[in-house]
Design a protein around this nucleic acid. Sequence first.
DNA 1: AATTAATCACTTTTTACCACTTTTTACCAC
DNA 2: GTGGTAAAAAGTGGTAAAAAGTGATTAATT
Lengths: 156, 156
Amino acid sequence: MLNLLGEYHCKADAKGRVLFPARLKKQLENILHHGLVVNRDIFTQCLVIYPKPEWDKVNEEMSRLSRYNQKHQLFQRKFMKGATMIDLDAAGRMSIPSVLLEYIQINSKENDLVITGLGEKMEIWNSGAYQNQVLGDDMDFSDLAEEVRKDLDGKM
Amino acid sequence: MLNLLGEYHCKADAKGRVLFPARLKKQLENILHHGLVVNRDIFTQCLVIYPKPEWDKVNEEMSRLSRYNQKHQLFQRKFMKGATMIDLDAAGRMSIPSVLLEYIQINSKENDLVITGLGEKMEIWNSGAYQNQVLGDDMDFSDLAEEVRKDLDGKM
DNA sequence: AATTAATCACTTTTTACCACTTTTTACCAC
DNA sequence: GTGGTAAAAAGTGGTAAAAAGTGATTAATT
């Protein structure tokens, strides 16, 4: 089972290309050649990268939605809008669409970013935002954990 | 059941590598070859090391979280951010990612650290911080103990 | 003797550029 | 409106130098 790990600090070049971290490459060696899918995260100002096989699962879930149900369509649109298939070039770089980079406030001046492995997916963050949001205060983490634990106990 | 013990003082070399204490190695002899996972502690400025099998349990729980639930995602991110798989090299050293060493204020000048065994996991501390926090004031320990005792009686 | 620390040489990865190609945009003539 | 062209922008590919990571050996300490 896929268990992507690690936190990698890297940079976008002037053209919005990001060298895919070598360590992540190793963790994905069997499936990286299938490509990756990048998209905006629904809840947070970061991007999500799925290895193609993972994205296929997501897509499969989406395909079960009803074409004739407005809410389903809205949900699908929110979740999938902007999703883009990307491959690594010969030098191991991924070319991330500029609209997605803009979403996380990355440009030719602000070009430090963080890629993190999170099990079956990865996330791309603006370096500054990562410091604030993710490494920020964890006063309420116990409460959060408790709520999540209830969900897990409840079902799933 | 795993019961790691002891307090070990060691040093990071110029490249951020730490020789894994021989005594801990002995305590882990059957499972060390599966590797280790290091991460930031959520509440305190120290690192946590899980033997891989322990981490797998954590990961299994994480995989039950919902991709479409904001709190679940937040929880996963807070908990897994930065977690990194490490193996010991031929000399028995673990190469700890520099971002994690920075978190506990370890660098080429400040390179003294303490590794402690805590049952099923270990912790890595900046030596100075360890003196202060762990050996520091214990005025309120009785209160703490009392609160924890209530939690334990209550459930768990 | 075994464990830990320090050092050096070497390899891989990452960054920062440069040169070139393709695509898009803007403008003008027909 | 259609077609053409030039300029601008965006996208690709490649490489040298810097930085980071790795392996191996020697020295010091317990």
